[in-house]
Design a protein around this nucleic acid. Structure first.
Lengths: 299, 299
DNA sequence: TCGATCGATGCCATTTTTGGATTGATGTTC
DNA sequence: GAACATCAATCCAAAAATGGCATCGATCGA
């Protein structure tokens, strides 16, 4: 069988129709070039060039072979480039898990940044709750997850990627929605829609801790998993709720969002709501490294 | 840069995930295989395989490169095959010139045979009178021509490919068309449409010689180039004509064809009408050799 | 007829490749 | 935990391939 180096020799001669000039082009001398082309012809069992001591011309078989030879050389370079780009993380594919809520704000902004910075990487998205993401990571179904606390999975690496405050969600016309901001104490004895302690434990605990910190005891009228469901119940007048600021991107008619007032010392609502990226430390996918490098850009 | 032999080594290892088995497959020993794969990785500047003393696994770059490597090897084999098929005349292209009349019978039958026997050869057809075919041959516009005599072009090779008789063409109802065959003597003083002595000299001379051989002197009422035009004038009642048997394939309504009666000794009409193939003897197109080899099949 | 140019061939030095021997690492069995 | 088998990598000598110089026969132009 022939080699790519034979093809380079043949292509140079076929294009120059002169062994001397082709040899110069290939940085070798004319005798080895003559021999290399002869080796190619022998390997193929076909005469590719007709030559006298003065004239070099392609045979019909040579005419057939020349475009194929050029194509092989081009494809070889392309294959090398593709391998290099994959190795460097410029090209490849990553499977990313995300929670519904992270899809409201962080994820869209991250995807935008990621596509701009790494257009050659294919991002495969899978929505699932945090617990399922850990299972999928362990099973290799996803390579990185966007999850809520709390987790204590030592076998995964993690990185905090975003924090945001909780806001009050109240129906239009609700007394608490009239003010520009709301004191936590005002939530005492208020009907409130809160999170499921099972399917949304992180948010359940967060809300409970926040209210307890102010000595407020809301009247929890419903426990729900999804934020968009919570907003629906708020609109229906069942009560108020505390939701992450990103929920504002849902633009729910009939529901107003108000910051929580703080004591005079701190000045701004604490960013209590955390979002973490998690992955297997042994993952060697270069595109994952590329992705992880871009996470801090969107915080 | 890497070589196709490197690709073969890599593909074998990638498929076996074991250097020893891959080496056996490639008919070489394990140490040189290990080194060849290392050379490929060095040439690319990319790690394609992760390996410990016990485990071999593709990297992501290796996963990207493997299908490209397989493709290159396949295309290399295909390129070799294409060159061999062109060299053997199994594949390629031929330009063939032909006269209008040869298109009635010989050429269709030849094309049918040629396509069956040489499906990989592209046949490019160009209709032109014999004189123009010689010019086109000399100029390289066609590679073989189907021409009528007479020619005396020593620089071309030729081969008689078909012969056929002349038949009498008479309008329906014409007295000469009532009999199953016609004596040449019957043509004496008959109105006759014949060939142009300039644009169809071969046929003009043939008809004149045939009539003179029987002592008949037809009354030539028209001189025309093309056989289908002659048949039209016969139908119109201007006279009879002598045409090659292949003209019967035109199926001209209103015109009957009758064989020419011979003297008792010979028994059948002589095949006076000749068709020759001509080409440049220096032409090296293998597909032309294939075509020429098939010409005698259709005679 | 002579000289210049060209591709092919001979020969040799250098480089590359191959295979056997061996190594260190790793997993299995006892 | 030790012994053993297996595996990919390394070392080294031998074989093969490559490249370059010298030269050849053929061909073209002056």
């Amino acid at each position: 069988m022939f080699e790519l180096s034979h093809l380079r020799c043949f292509v140079a001669v076929a294009e120059e129709l002169h062994f001397g000039r082709a040899a110069v082009r290939l940085n070798l001398s004319q005798p080895p070039l003559s021999r290399q082309v002869q080796l190619l012809e022998h390997a193929l069992g076909v005469r590719l060039l007709e030559r006298t001591s003065r004239v070099v011309r392609l045979t019909r078989a040579g005419e057939t072979f020349l475009p194929e030879a050029r194509r092989l050389l081009r494809l070889a370079e392309g294959a090398a480039l593709a391998a290099r780009r994959t190795a460097s993380g410029e090209a490849g594919s990553v499977t990313l898990g995300f929670t519904a809520a992270s899809g409201y704000d962080f994820l869209p902004r991250f995807i935008q940044t990621f596509r701009a910075q790494a257009p050659g990487v294919d991002l495969v998205l899978k929505e699932m709750v945090s617990a399922d993401q850990f299972e999928s990571l362990a099973a290799g179904r996803i390579e990185i997850g966007l999850v809520r606390p709390w987790f204590n999975r030592r076998e995964f690496s993690s990185q905090l990627v975003a924090r945001e405050p909780l806001l009050l969600a109240a129906p239009e016309g609700h007394p608490l929605a009239q003010a520009a901001e709301v004191a936590l104490a005002d939530l005492d004895q208020q009907p409130m829609v809160t999170y499921s302690p099972y399917e949304a434990r992180y948010f359940y605990d967060l809300v409970a801790a926040l209210c307890a910190s102010a000595g407020a005891t809301p009247h929890y009228v419903q426990h729900v998993s999804q934020i968009h469901s919570i907003l629906g119940l708020v609109k229906a007048g069942l009560g108020v709720a505390l939701v992450p600021r990103a929920a504002g991107n849902l633009r729910f008619d009939g529901v107003l969002l108000r910051p929580i007032a703080l004591d005079a010392r701190s000045g701004e609502a604490p960013n209590l709501v955390e979002l973490h990226a998690v992955w297997q430390p042994t993952n060697t996918n270069p595109a994952l490294a590329t992705l992880r490098g871009l996470l801090p850009r969107v915080g």
